[in-house]
Amino acid sequence: MNALLDAVAAVGRALLGACRLIGQIALFALEGLSHLARPPFYWRLFLRAFLDIGYYSLPVVALTAIFTGMVLALQSATGLSRFNAESAVANLVVLSITRELGPVLAGLMVAGRVGAAMAAELGTMRVTDQIDALTTLSTNPMKYLVTPRLLAGLLALPLLVLVADILGVLGGFIIATVKLGYNSGVYLTNTLDFLQTDDVVSGLVKAAMFGFLVTLMGCYQGYNSRGGAQGVGAATTYAVVSASVLILAFDYVLTELFFAR
């Protein structure tokens, strides 16, 4: 009986801990966003974060997108040929890239590159008292460190995903026309005929959400890190893992919202 009670208590503690964590992250996000409406806004820091996410992540996101488009064309051609449906390759590639793979893969790449860097930077600032120093210098650390990064993530990832969409489709086009012998004009026509505005827009909305989640988790874990180098390392790991899991979870939620009939 006691063992059963202990088990129930352990589950209850874990559940309460999870609720507390979600609440803390939600409050952190709300406070970060609330500073958008309260001046001053640190434009220089916003531009720096925007460049870091949007421009310096471009090579890794571009490579990921182009190779994904290539693999997708190759795999779908071999799979669809079993049903004599090779003509659907263009359709499958463009929908997969714009609706799912573009935003999800770009989000995961940015989580690994930018989320980790943000957690490490803010974590180091925390353990070296730089965040406390901001407070003593009449500067709100949330406003200075978190708000510009959240906004940058929210705005930069959709632009990155737009590029990823184009390059992903291009990757599929190259494989389909060069390796699989598809007619380039027909392939492009199929691509454009099947593509609808909603497909692209839903992907960009997902990208905005993923960009926000990546920067939120990077900032939250770094801002609240403790315990020196080990704590900063742990914050970096948690930032990447939690952002990656949240991207996949929110991808399902948003897909359900956009496309479930």
Binding site: M125, T128, D129, Q130, D132, A133, T135, T136, S138
Partner: peptide
């Protein structure tokens, strides 16, 4: 509280200079 903080100067143990 912000007005009071504006009157304060603080030297941290390890300097806490902003790396960036």
């Amino acid at each position: 509280a912000e007005a009071v903080r504006a009157r304060i100067g603080m030297l941290f143990q390890n300097g806490a200079l902003f790396d960036s």
